[in-house]
């Protein structure tokens, strides 16, 4: 079936099977492999992307359900060669080791800071509680998000995307 999904500000039209999952649509059909695919059982959160402005687990959403909707992936965080504060935070505070969980962590963190710019450590922990990291033990991830909260971008990151 024909669907059109707006991913990172750009419309993508594809012919897909209704049973195709959003995570595979992003990775295999659009080549956006920044979104990872892990447990496949809605537990680990590595597949987190924004669907209509809220983070969801894209292994548990059908691509056809995103028809006519907006999706934002980790590829959209960097703007004009400038990393998003959450990306800088993870880099500054060693918020990743293998990096497998990182795209999902980044997308949830960006959303948290957009809705709550100065979260407590507890609020950060709750925000990422649907996501697993097997490497860092979470301490550095929480520190990274705090760093991003303390170093917001000079320019507002929510300006409309112009790349087509």
């Amino acid at each position: 079936m024909k669907i059109t999904v707006t991913v990172n500000g750009q419309d993508h039209e594809r012919d897909v099977e209704p049973r195709l999952l959003l995570v595979h649509f992003l990775r295999d059909d659009l080549g956006l492999t920044g979104t990872h695919w892990g447990c496949d059982t809605s537990n680990c959160g590595v597949c987190a992307v924004w669907l209509d402005d809220v983070p969801v687990k894209s292994c548990t959403v059908l691509a056809v359900m995103a028809d006519g909707k907006t999706v934002r992936t980790v590829e959209d965080l960097e703007r004009d060669g400038e990393l998003d504060p959450v990306q800088k935070g993870f880099s500054e505070c060693h918020g990743l080791q293998c990096g497998f969980c990182t795209p999902g962590m980044l997308m949830t963190s960006r959303w948290l800071l957009d809705t709550n710019p100065d979260p407590s450590d507890e609020e950060i922990r709750v925000a990422i509680s649907g996501q697993l990291c097997r490497c860092t033990g979470y301490e550095n991830i929480v520190r990274s998000v705090r760093w991003a909260a303390e170093h917001p971008a000079v320019q507002n990151t929510s300006e409309p995307d112009v790349t087509v």
Binding site: S42, G45, A48, L51, V54, P55, V56, K57, T60, V61, T108, V126, A127, S129, G130, Q131
Partner: peptide, 9 residues
Amino acid sequence: IADPLVRNR
């Protein structure tokens, strides 16, 4: 109930 991502959906 579940986690914030599941609760969003």
